[in-house]
Computed example of a mutant assay.
Amino acid sequence: MNDTVGGRLRGRVALVTGGTRGVGAGIARALVEAGAEVLVCARRPPEVPLPGVEFRAVDLRDRTAVFDFVGGLPRLDVLVNNVGGSPYRPLGEGDVERHARVVELNLITPLTVSLAAYEHLKRARGSVVMIGSVSGSRPSPGTAAYGAAKAGLEHLARSMAVEWAPDVRVNTLVVGMVRTELSHLHYGGSDGLDAVARTVPAGRLADPADIGAAAVFLASDDAAYISGASLLMHGGGERPAFLDAATANKGGG
């Protein structure tokens, strides 16, 4: 067990949406290490076993199924709205319905699950952790609908934190680039991953365990006075392109 998180959430029940791989699986593992009873829900089970994690098959876009599943839980203390994602699709190359589905998955689904969980969380004086993205605060060519949805998710969390206070805390982890089992689809092989990592001040992409540790913190009593906050997890951000351009022009002539 990781001593930095061990026991922080002992006796609590946590639900991670879409927690079967990548960032979601990293969060689920961290919650287990912190002592929580952890459920993950998605359409398909994890390909790699997650020890100590219970899987439930739920189509999170089916609002009736979401309310039936969440409402049927005996208890819920922590909700991590992790489900989301988007294929690369320039705005002009997809019809409106395809872009709308991206917004639905990344914004409407977390809202739906949060509403379904509210009574549980209120009784438990629990916590919601939204998994946001730096794409919500910067141009996102090729994933514009995703970026717009993540911007909306962060705003939703702030409003929810006010409306549901003091019973439920709501915060957002604003996540940058993460090295997962699917990273090669976005950045290429090891050379591409290394090149992308060099653009991050921290010198590497995040690991799912990094995101998991932060989620544990926000869900725990250590963050009891933190609500409506957005925690940046991007390794220092991105080196501004103009600096590289300026450096390249030095020594000219």
Rank of each mutant, 00 (worst) to 15 (best):
A28V: 00
V5N: 11
A241V: 14
V128G: 07
D68K: 13
V103N: 09
L185C: 02
Y118C: 03
P87W: 07
P74M: 02
G147Q: 07
S227P: 11
E154C: 05
S137W: 06
L156S: 01
A65K: 04
V66Q: 05
G188L: 08
L205P: 02
R204T: 01
A149V: 07
V96T: 13
A214H: 00
H186K: 14
S86L: 08
G26C: 08
I108W: 06
V103A: 15
V83M: 03
A195P: 03
D244R: 13
R89D: 06
G188I: 08
M160C: 04
L185M: 14
V168F: 07
A215N: 03
R29G: 00
V96Q: 13
Y225A: 13
V170G: 07
G147W: 10
V168N: 09
G203C: 06
T112C: 13
G152V: 04
L205Q: 08
L153I: 03
R10N: 09
E33Q: 15
T112G: 06
L107Q: 01
L153T: 02
G24V: 00
E97F: 07
Y146V: 04
V128R: 12
D222K: 06
V38K: 04
L79A: 00
E33V: 00
V200H: 14
H186I: 12
G72Q: 05
A157T: 02
M233F: 08
C41Q: 05
S86Q: 08
A202Y: 08
V178G: 10
Y225I: 08
P90C: 05
R89V: 07
P208K: 05
P74F: 02
V96E: 15
A161H: 09
V196F: 15
L60T: 06
R198E: 13
M233N: 04
A144C: 11
A165V: 05
L121Q: 09
D244H: 11
A161S: 15
V48L: 10
R12V: 00
Y146D: 07
G203S: 07
R56M: 02
H234S: 14
G237Q: 10
V178K: 11
A215I: 03
A223F: 13
N106W: 08
M160S: 09
V48P: 02
N82G: 01
T199C: 05
S86Y: 03
E119R: 15
G85Y: 05
L232S: 11
I27Y: 00
S230D: 01
P46F: 04
S135T: 09
L31K: 02
P90E: 06
D222G: 14
D221Y: 08
V216P: 06
V5W: 10
R198K: 15
A165P: 09
I226F: 12
G252L: 14
A34M: 09
T180K: 12
S220R: 10
S137A: 12
L153H: 03
A223R: 07
R29F: 00
L232Y: 13
L39R: 15
G6I: 02
V66D: 04
L115H: 14
L105A: 09
T109D: 02
D194R: 15
T172V: 14
V102L: 11
A161Y: 11
P49K: 03
T112N: 10
A197L: 03
L182D: 13
L193M: 15
V216Q: 09
D3K: 14
G132S: 02
V102F: 04
D62S: 01
H155Y: 08
R198C: 01
